[in-house]
């Protein structure tokens, strides 16, 4: 007996949005990825195994939907590609999301899937390639950079 799908949205909606934002940067794209993730998940919900880890399952779908969006982005004429890098005003503090956007891709994805999405390193590696150890290092380096950039001590 499966729980109402709304429970999955309620419990994991924010996590999936964080992952989408970290992976894709810009808000409109992250929100599109969020919507596509939950629509696909809704369709597959009745056939999901009872003991499945719902959050990990959603994060994996979000990864695929984000990839779709990145692919679509590549087929756009170059002047329509949404800006993905930031050129922050040095006078104001970086927001956490701007800091995430400035990370190298491997670190950004490792932080997104492990620290925001809660996936173990082995599953992060399965999504982004490389070894679990490399995923662990990328996530650790990413978090270290974020702390430095955001001038946080912990």
């Amino acid at each position: 007996m499966r729980a109402p799908f709304e429970r999955a949205v309620e419990h994991h909606g924010a996590t999936v949005l964080r992952v989408c934002r970290a992976v894709l940067g810009g808000d409109p794209e992250a929100e599109d990825a969020w919507s596509e993730t939950f629509l696909a998940a809704l369709r597959a919900w009745p056939s999901l195994a009872e003991d499945a880890n719902v959050e990990a399952w959603l994060v994996t779908i979000a990864h695929r939907k984000a990839l779709d969006i990145v692919r679509r982005r590549r087929t756009l004429p170059i002047d329509q590609v949404p800006a993905c890098t930031v050129d922050p005003d040095p006078a104001t503090a970086l927001t956490v999301w701007e800091a995430v956007r400035s990370l190298p891709e491997r670190q950004r994805l490792a932080v997104a899937y492990h620290h925001l999405g809660g996936l173990p390193y082995a599953e992060v590696a399965a999504l982004v390639g490389g070894s679990p150890e490399a995923a662990r290092r990328a996530a650790a380096d990413g978090m270290k950079t974020l702390r430095t950039v955001l001038k946080e001590d912990e």
Binding site: G13, L17, R18, E31, L39, V96, L116, L150, E152
Partner: peptide
């Protein structure tokens, strides 16, 4: 470090999800 998301944006997204799921016959 707080990776904040805006709750009202999330509520909008949830309502939009329900709309498209209903329109698509997925509910």
């Amino acid at each position: 470090m707080r990776f904040d998301v805006d709750d009202t944006r999330l509520d909008d997204l949830r309502e939009r999800l329900a709309d498209s799921a209903y329109a698509g016959g997925d509910l």
